[in-house]
Amino acid sequence: MRTTRPHLSADELDAVHETALPADIRTHLADCAACFEMVRTDQDLVAALKRLPHLDPSPGFVDRVMARVVIPAYGIRTWPQRILASRRSLATAASWTVVIGGAMMASVLWSLANRDLLMGWGDQLLTEGTRLFWLGFRSTAAALTEQPWYQELRIIVTSPGRLAAVLAGLSVAFGSGVLAFRHLVAIPARAVRDANW
C-alpha cells in the first residue's frame, strides 16, 4: 500500500454513492485494496437495495381506506371559514370588497357633486311614474267592469255576510295550502331506506 492517507471515513463512504469522487479519494482507492473492496461491496449492496421492488397492497385498498375516511362537506362551511380557507379566497374576497366599496364611494361622490341634475331627473321620473300609474289603474278598472262576472262579485262584496263567508273560505284554503307545503318540504327526521338510489 503506497498511500499515506487514512482509510475512508463513513461520510466519505457515503459520498461514494452521491457525488463524483474527489481526486485524493480516487488516488487512495487505487492504492488501498481494503478501501477499494469496501467501496465495491457497498456499491453492490446499495444497487441491490435500489432494485428491491415496491410492493402492492391487495386490490381495493383505496376503497377500503375511503370507506373509513370522513370527508367534511365543504358546503356546510360558514362564509368566514370559506373566505379564510386559502390565500386565493381571501384575495378574492378582498378584491370584491375593494371593487364594490370603491363603486359605492364613487357613486356617493358623484351624487354630491351633481345634486341639481339628480333632482331634475327625480322630478321627471316622479311625474312620469305617477301619470303611468293612474293610466294603468284606470285601464284595469275599465277592463274589470266589462267582465261578465263583475256584477255577481259586486253583489257578494256589497253584502257583509256573504263577504265574511267568502273570506273565511279563502283563509281556510290558504292555511291548508301552507300546511301541506310545509309537510312536503320538511327534512325527514329519520334516514329513508334506499333514498340514495
Partner: peptide, 22 residues
Amino acid sequence: ARKGKERAYRELVRRYERPVFS
C-alpha cells in the same frame, strides 16, 4: 382535498399506497 373533493383524497392514497405498504 381540503375543499372536500373525494377525488383528491383518492389521488393521495393512490400516490403513496405502494411506498407506504412496502
